[in-house]
Design a protein around this nucleic acid. Sequence first.
DNA 1: TCAACATACGGAACGGCGTTCCGGATGCCA
DNA 2: TGGCATCCGGAACGCCGTTCCGTATGTTGA
Lengths: 195, 195
Amino acid sequence: MADIDSGSERPVPRKRADARRNERALLDAAAAAFVTSGVDVPVRDIAVRAGVGVGTIYRHFPSRADLIVAVYRHQIEACAEAGPALLADSDTPHAALAQWIDLFVDFLVTKHGLAAALQSDDAAFQSLHAYFLDRLVPVCDQLLDAAVAAQEIRPDMDAYGLLRGVGNLCIGAGNDPRYDARRLVDLLVAGLRVR
Amino acid sequence: MADIDSGSERPVPRKRADARRNERALLDAAAAAFVTSGVDVPVRDIAVRAGVGVGTIYRHFPSRADLIVAVYRHQIEACAEAGPALLADSDTPHAALAQWIDLFVDFLVTKHGLAAALQSDDAAFQSLHAYFLDRLVPVCDQLLDAAVAAQEIRPDMDAYGLLRGVGNLCIGAGNDPRYDARRLVDLLVAGLRVR
DNA sequence: TCAACATACGGAACGGCGTTCCGGATGCCA
DNA sequence: TGGCATCCGGAACGCCGTTCCGTATGTTGA
């Protein structure tokens, strides 16, 4: 989506230098703030870190959810692209599915508060929700289909439901040493197998 | 906890009539508001429903979490007490466990937003968290122990982790027809079985 | 180089939230 | 009925995400 101006004419006349600088500063500041205080960190804190006013945040990112998406876009892309690769490399589709879900869990568990934000029905988080779904559901679907075709798992599980379940299980992981989200996800994936 | 004054002397001299009336009105109003708008309903709305000022809510319930606990206390108690009963009546401990978890899921799924509040790390919800845990973890532990003793499930699952997992899976159920929390919980419980 | 303009900035302001505070009202008991 | 402990209502506080707008600044054409 970025840098479409590799073509001949220039319909989008490039943003001002300070705007580009601020956008970069905001992405860096937000990433750092998310690590320190979780994705629920107040917008004002991010603005202070970036040395910028709050208004500037909203010029670049329509809502806090879009900022979150922007910060994690690369990692989500990487996760999505790992799906077909795992399917090609693994011994069985079920192994690929398990490994891919592990990747997803790794991602969520290390982002304090992200899993909770993902399931929030707050309208402000709709774009976050939508981006994850658009990008990951098709990948998960492909893995599920392959495992079903190999008769490794029961055929009545949909990718959307599974991803939401895994996402839900990751909520609060990392806050509480007594709660091991990964083990529960493993249990869930184990329950998926044909008996 | 209520009505300790069945004894002889009366060290706690009974609350004023208007206070008792308001507490009852608040419980009723909160219950109705939770059904209509979920447990996240603004405190002011509950106050309006009860025909009372916001200050009155906080005199009776130290925080919104305590109001939630008060509203659902009876149902939580019922769920807790159903555990031993199911264990006595069911054919196998695993069946009892599955049925009990079903009860828990039934309870959570019908309380819009409760499951999310339960997992929130917000300090205001600590008493909610604590009450659920105090009351339900021992029951779940008993069911798990029995099922482990009968060699029906793997022995490495703790009651706290399981309850949190089930609670997490129930987040957002009821908002989204595409998400079937019960099915995922069933999968989780199925994954618990020894292979 | 400079003026003029589109673009972007900062932070005050807004509406909503949970919670606290306190002057005034009210039930209770002597 | 008077006096007092108890309780009430709702304004006020601090924090939040988001919006708005007067001001500043990068850019561009002359």
